[in-house]
Every structure is written in structure tokens, then in C-alpha cells.
């Protein structure tokens, strides 16, 4: 049924605050999930150009990699679609211990 939107307002607020301070900001959003995944479609994470972040796209499993891509997106302005899952070669580096798969869209905030 419904997506609870309680957290998104806080993430948005922090992103706006960072932008107001003149910082570069990227936003990551879970756009699809398969199998067991810790966050629902629509879950968000915002990161500033120093690597500080709010929100989450998983249970803490892939946030590190998402933040790296966020920093890259802040630099080059290109949106990215990231795949994470156990079928990934990097399963043991950057993967979901739960065995699920997620796709995360990362974009620079203007």
C-alpha cells in the first residue's frame, strides 16, 4: 500500500540547507527492488560535496558506494543508475547481505 513519506521531508530540508550554504549536493533514490531489500522504492539519501549524508537507500550495505557516485555526480553533473545485488561481481565488496537487488538513481541537485 502506501509509502510512508515521513523521512523524505527531513532529507529534503537538509539538502536545501546545504544548497543554501553553497554546497554541491547529490540525491540518490531507490527506483527498483527485487527480492528481499531493506528499503522501499522511493527511499532517499542526500550527500553534500564533503561526503556528509542523510537518509538511506539500504540497511547501510551500499551507502558507501552510493556516496562515492554522488560525489562524482556533483562534479560532472551526469545522472547515474546503479545496480546492487548478489549477482554483482563485487558482491562481497559492495552488495546486499540479504540477497536482494536494488537499483539506485543518483543525480546532482540544482
Amino acid at each position: 500500500m502506501a509509502t510512508n513519506s515521513g523521512d523524505n521531508g527531513d532529507i529534503l530540508e537538509q539538502a536545501a540547507k546545504w544548497r543554501g550554504q553553497g554546497k554541491g549536493v547529490a540525491l540518490a533514490t531507490v527506483v527498483s527492488t527485487w527480492g528481499s531489500s531493506p528499503r522501499q522504492v522511493g527511499a532517499k539519501l542526500a550527500v553534500d560535496d564533503s561526503g556528509a549524508f542523510v537518509g538511506s537507500v539500504s540497511g547501510g550495505c551500499v551507502e558507501g558506494a552510493v556516496i562515492e557516485e554522488g560525489l562524482a555526480a556533483i562534479k560532472d553533473g551526469k545522472p547515474r543508475l546503479l545496480d546492487f545485488g548478489v549477482t554483482n561481481e563485487q558482491a562481497w565488496d559492495v552488495g546486499l547481505a540479504c540477497g536482494g537487488k536494488i537499483q539506485v538513481f543518483v543525480e546532482r541537485v540544482e
Binding site: M1, A2, T3, N4, S5, G6, T29, V31, S32, V41, G42, L81, Q103, F105
Partner: peptide, 23 residues
């Protein structure tokens, strides 16, 4: 459906994110 979804279109992938009034 109150469900955000990623769809395939002839022009490529499109993400539809739904924002419904809170419960």
C-alpha cells in the same frame, strides 16, 4: 496504486515517483 515504479519506454527507462498524502 500508490506505488512508485521504474518503467521501460521506447525512449528508455522512466522513474515514476508517487507522492500521496500521508497516512
Amino acid at each position: 496504486d500508490d506505488r512508485s515504479t521504474l518503467i521501460e519506454t521506447p525512449e528508455g527507462k522512466v522513474f515514476i515517483e508517487v507522492f500521496n498524502p500521508p497516512l
